[in-house]
Design a protein around this nucleic acid. Structure first.
Lengths: 345, 345
DNA sequence: TTGTACGCGTTATCAC
DNA sequence: GTGATAACGCGTACAA
């Protein structure tokens, strides 16, 4: 490395006549120096253009202030906004983030984790879902997961059940003849399963005619369009002239469905009510603003980092007491009524 | 730190009877050991459950393999997708990324840069635009900017001029009576200014009636709606019964404009052609798929990291030759014709 | 209040 | 092919 070496504590020590220790103290415990000496050192820092070297500090005291993140992608608005909010917590907590895209490959995600551990990260936030929480727990490092299977680790999730209840209740209030929930096949251990359970429970409780349609809707707009069009045709046949309340698993899908209806009828027909999930921008920006269940991403992000910081602080104690049971925090979603449910009563 | 200490080269050395040096060589130059000894060490690594410590390695050889990123936000799809693609280059180049959200505050961005430098990052990718490139160049560290003022530093940008030409030419080919370009006020030193220049040049060259409308459109959907509605009313009055070709600065704005038309007419009237910019998801997912100029974000990201890696490699030579002139790479955009321009000729 | 001496875990430079 | 030893830059007992 032929770079002009940065000035070190040694240089400052020589320059000022103090010892390295005193320089170190200037940074970590300035009150233990006289004000005069503080000023002398302060001036030396400027004269020598000192720049701190955190790597050396880490090696010496073990605190990296790094948090690792593994996130499936950033195409999905939910993930990019979550990452956005997580990164913003730097202002509050001061932790820096090393981010990896998980691309849904179990082995490469394991490799990412190893890489992160090699950098002595203090904690890990996992949004990808390939690695079982049992394995994550075995890493023996503070972990928080968000919106994924979380049996053995701490987590922060949206109250999906409540969201399902809210959406379904809203549709029910509009006296629909039949309630439809469209979703991808979902395992019960995933938090998002709560949306389905909420739907079913409300329908059962209120004795409403209902149906859940599980179907893989695909990843491209074209695939979604095709699959949702099939579903639309089925509904048109099955429930012609009935008022249909449709709760769709995401705003993206809801928008596709809405566009299909607009293409077919030039508007949203009176016998269709639609509500999505997530409060993605697309819900607001759709040709007809779509009602949705809004996840409080900012709160989820803050709670996740906060929960992680607590664990990390515990680790730094002389006698850390690991949690006996993982903590699962739950953030209530917010119902957003827009034009796809509010036009007709 | 009462954590059970990780095993170190020393432990392995003791366990195997070799010296620390040999252990180090096993990792960095394995061929210099006999196969037997390699296996002995390999076994010891497993027995002792060795985990590499990159922090120590950094301190010793100065190579962090860190790249810093400062990005304005992740709400905007362009930024989140760019970050997505940048992070994915880990697979190819092996560099890890420390990401900060710039929140458009010059001072806090300076602080982020200091923090990044304290971690000995090897290079910096800047997408935020508050700090002048002159100041960035003075950091004396490899830098690449993306789509911002870039006079004194290396950069990768979309060929905005070409994009403007493509969009305008497409509208011109459809024999519009008047071409309109709607944009925010844009400084000429910003790459995006090229879109305006491209528009103007094509109009001038082909002697087309045209107009550029500069207006701050706001940040919320409601603000955009209000401002674009005003513009729409102006256009309706000024160019009634004329065929209007409208080139809007972003897909988000184009979608708002389209929705206003749909709300007013129930469809996209024949005397309106619309083309946006970016190829955001919203362009494809709009009620009527919107023609747009697609930025090749994956290529831009790859080129940016690639350009940075070149500079970083140069830095590692014994006698680095800094670039005399910053390199500015330009990526050609791709015209995407969709329904908002292709329905009528 | 300040200084000494050593440790953190690895790499680099010489020797052999 | 292998080993001893000195960096790398900072923190921290312990001593003064």
């Amino acid at each position: 490395m032929p770079k002009k070496k940065n000035t070190t504590f040694n240089d400052i020590a020589n320059y000022t006549g103090f010892s390295k220790t005193t320089i170190s103290r200037y940074f970590n415990n300035p009150d233990s120096l006289t004000l005069e000496n503080q000023e002398i050192i302060a001036r030396a820092l400027i004269d020598l253009d000192y720049k701190e070297n955190k790597v050396a500090r880490i090696l010496a005291n073990g605190k990296t202030e790094f948090i690792g993140i593994i996130i499936p992608n950033l195409n999905n608005h939910y993930y990019s906004e979550m990452l956005n909010q997580i990164l913003l917590t730097y202002e509050h907590f001061g932790y820096k983030f090393l981010v990896f895209i998980g691309n849904e490959n179990e082995d490469s995600e394991r490799q990412y984790i190893q890489e992160l551990l090699a950098y002595n990260i203090e904690g890990l936030i996992i949004l990808s879902f390939t690695i079982p929480s049992k394995e994550l727990a075995d890493l023996q490092i503070p972990i928080v997961t968000i919106e994924r299977e979380d049996q053995y680790v701490c987590s922060v999730n949206t109250d999906n059940y409540m969201g399902g209840v809210q959406a379904t209740s809203l549709l029910a209030r509009h006296n629909c003849d039949v309630l439809i929930h469209i979703n991808s096949p979902t395992a019960p251990e995933i938090p998002a399963y709560g949306r389905i359970q909420g739907f079913l429970d409300v329908c059962t409780e209120k004795d409403l005619k209902h149906r859940v349609i599980f179907r893989v809707l695909g990843n491209t707009y074209e695939q979604m369009q095709e699959n949702l069009n099939e579903i639309l045709e089925e509904l048109e046949q099955e429930y012609a002239s009935q008022k249909k309340g449709i709760f769709i698993s995401s705003d993206t899908h809801a928008n596709v469905f809405l566009n299909l209806l607009i293409k077919k009828y030039g508007k949203l027909p009176d016998d269709y009510l639609i509500i999505g999930f997530d409060d993605s921008p697309i819900a607001r920006e759709a040709a007809i603003p779509i009602s949705t269940v809004g996840q409080q991403i900012d709160k989820i992000a803050y709670e996740a980092v906060s929960l992680l910081v607590e664990q990390m602080n515990e680790q730094k104690k002389r006698k850390p007491e690991p949690l006996k049971e993982p903590i699962h925090k739950v953030i209530t979603p917010i119902l957003l009524r827009r034009d796809t449910t509010e036009k007709a009563d």
